[in-house]
């Protein structure tokens, strides 16, 4: 190894080892989970060979299918709404300079990031319980609304970041070329902004899929999502079926994160 000279002088002893250990610690639990989801034996104490039986069991479990589907469409609905609302908000806050109330708007948008989830959860439970009694409505709208609010800051961040890198003169140039404001937005700003919007949606989607505390407190009977269902199961004796469910969920998250990673890397 001839190339050790440059880094040798500024290397901090032990840091590389500690970092690599950390990566191992990060991935051992996940790897354990994935490996044992393919274990034919029902326990960790032995390995009986490769098997897909737990996946079969999980996919044939009506309850799992039901809560997984609910999670997906909830994340889709809340993610879409949050992205739409956050994109509009980002257009208002990034363009057109400073304005009165900007700090307050930012505080409001970022509030779900700062307030502990448990506090938001019980607060929503209290407020919605009143609404439930008054209106008699007990559907999924509460969950969609709660998830949307919770996802707004996550969708807002990438859109805003993207918008800040865009050259505002592009839209002005389009306006100079007699494009109407709407057409300038549709033909110039939106296509350039699109990767940010998609990235924002990915984040919002994953966050909604992940949200457990708020869901637990807002849902009514029969509105379990995958996370709340798992929360209930994990307090009991866990079957390897759970490994399979967790691995599948892991796969979905990884796909979304990879998509987010690729999207946010793409330059305009």
């Amino acid at each position: 190894m001839a190339d050790t000279g440059r880094s040798a002088v500024t290397r901090i002893p032990g840091f590389t080892a500690a970092a690599l250990l950390t990566f191992v610690l990060l991935y051992v639990p996940i790897a354990t989970l994935v490996v044992y989801s393919f274990n034919a034996a029902p326990s960790m104490s032995r390995w009986d060979g490769f098997s897909l039986q737990w996946y079969e069991a999980a996919l044939q479990n009506r309850q799992v299918r039901e809560v997984a589907l609910r999670s997906l469409w909830l994340a889709l609905a809340a993610g879409t709404m949050a992205t739409l609302v956050a994109t509009l908000a980002a257009l208002a806050t990034v363009r057109g300079g400073r304005f009165r109330g900007r700090t307050m708007i930012h505080a409001l948008i970022n509030q779900p990031l700062m307030v502990p989830e448990i506090v938001t959860g019980v607060a929503l439970m209290v407020v919605f319980s009143v609404v439930r009694v008054r209106t008699g409505y007990d559907g999924m709208a509460y969950l969609v609304l709660a998830h949307t609010a919770f996802c707004i800051p996550f969708a807002y961040l990438p859109v805003r970041a993207r918008l800040e890198t865009l050259d505002p003169t592009l839209a002005h140039a389009a306006a100079d070329l007699y494009a109407s404001r709407v057409r300038a937005f549709l033909h110039v700003t939106l296509p350039l902004l699109w990767p940010g919007v998609l990235a924002g949606f990915m984040l919002a989607f994953v966050i909604s899929l992940d949200a457990v505390v708020i869901t637990e407190f807002v849902k009514s009977a029969g509105q379990d999502t995958l996370p709340t269902w798992m929360l209930g199961q994990l307090r009991r004796v866990v079957t390897p079926e759970m490994n399979a469910v967790a691995t599948l969920l892991l796969g979905v998250s990884m796909l979304a994160v990879t998509a987010f990673f690729l999207l946010s890397r793409r330059r305009g």
Binding site: G5, R6, V9
Partner: peptide, 14 residues
């Protein structure tokens, strides 16, 4: 610059 860095000890010579 490499020569200078070798004088400073910021790099080790081959």
């Amino acid at each position: 610059s490499t020569l200078l860095r070798l004088l400073a000890g910021l790099e080790r010579p081959t």
